[in-house]
Design a protein around this nucleic acid. Structure first.
Lengths: 196, 196
DNA sequence: TTGCATAATTGAACAATGTTCATTATTTTT
DNA sequence: AAAAATAATGAACATTGTTCAATTATGCAA
């Protein structure tokens, strides 16, 4: 039935939006079934009529946040001309997005891949997310003969992994202590990687 | 009293060793107060006569594991002559140690810095751990005029952060899937960073 | 409108978590 | 041996995710 479909989707949305609000606000630690359900205006039991478990709900949020993150970056970099500067900016705003929403960072990178199935593709999406965001710029630099295709691949890989490490230390360990220092460090290390 | 001191230390050791065994074996997820206490041969309540909370117990393990990790690396690299190869080897075995004990990786890098005080220094120790392990090699390379002091600092920083990112993706997300691929990727990326 | 059948919502109940604390057991001192 | 001090214990509490029988709401046919 069509009506059923619409109603079910609407119900799901209530829970999804509640979860997204909590993740943005308080982060992963504030997520509980009872919390989500209360914010959605239903009992915690009702949640299980629409989702198998709380993980399913949380991983639905990942895709929404990815879209949001992409838009966040594009808004801030679309006017820039192709090249190193734009590449740097993309990576920078990619990091800033997660600094703004540490809960989403946890969700994207720290949540364990316990089990199976459909989540595999979600993880793959997260892993290649920065690659997709910066692909055009690396490609452009290769076409400009600024560096070889192989070197671009390696530097992109180094960047991708380094960025996660930096975010861990900053968000989980307050190292560096201030955002200013973090910003400065980001710039300096990206400069070193793009120093060709 | 001296006797009291010895007895208390001994009691602490029972719990610490039980915790270390669990971390090495099953990882952080298998850690529970009742689990630790059972393995130590006492009630879970007894644990609280010797530790403020389970976090204190866990963070004591960090220092022990750091010593173990340092020895693990030194055993495998002490015969090598100073230079790039040894530096690569140190970083590699640093990573291998955590691949061997993913629970210790979680403990070192993923456990949140919730609160205060004495843990600050523990986190600082963890953060600078790879720096300390590889300091002599970077210094040697600078002395050999292979690269500038500033560049060495930056490359060390890039490496430190990248390594954590790579371990996250490998241990938490099974990316790459096999240890062989992970090993290969490690070598290639370290080569690129040390390509001077 | 009424009555029945189907569907959706609910929260009590369960297991597992960390932590507290009054009670019990042990050891030390007198 | 009795008293005092110390240590060990597990019942109890507040959380957590999840299940499911019972309740409430809804849709539909008569």
């Amino acid at each position: 039935m069509d009506k059923k479909e619409i109603q079910e989707q609407r119900m799901k949305m209530y829970f999804i939006n509640a979860t997204k609000e909590l993740l943005k606000g308080e982060g992963l630690k504030s997520i509980s079934v009872r919390n989500i359900a209360e914010r959605a205006g239903y009992s915690f039991g009702t949640l299980y009529n629409y989702f198998d478990d709380v993980k399913e709900l949380i991983f639905i949020c990942v895709e929404d946040f990815q879209t949001e993150c992409r838009e966040f970056i594009e808004e801030r970099t679309k006017t820039q001309a192709q090249g190193k500067d734009k590449l740097r900016a993309i990576v920078k705003y990619y990091m800033f997005y997660f600094v703004q929403y540490p809960g989403i960072f946890e969700l994207f990178f720290l949540e364990r891949a316990n089990d199976v199935g459909n989540k595999k593709s979600t993880f793959e999406m997260i892993y290649s997310f920065l690659d997709k965001l910066s692909r055009d710029e690396w490609k452009y630099l290769v076409e400009q003969s600024a560096l070889s295709k192989q070197q671009a691949r390696l530097k992109a890989e180094i960047t991708k992994n380094m960025v996660v490490g930096m975010l861990i230390f900053y968000l989980n360990r307050h190292n560096p202590q201030s955002f200013d220092e973090f910003l400065q460090k980001t710039e300096i290390l990206l400069d070193e990687i793009l120093n060709f």
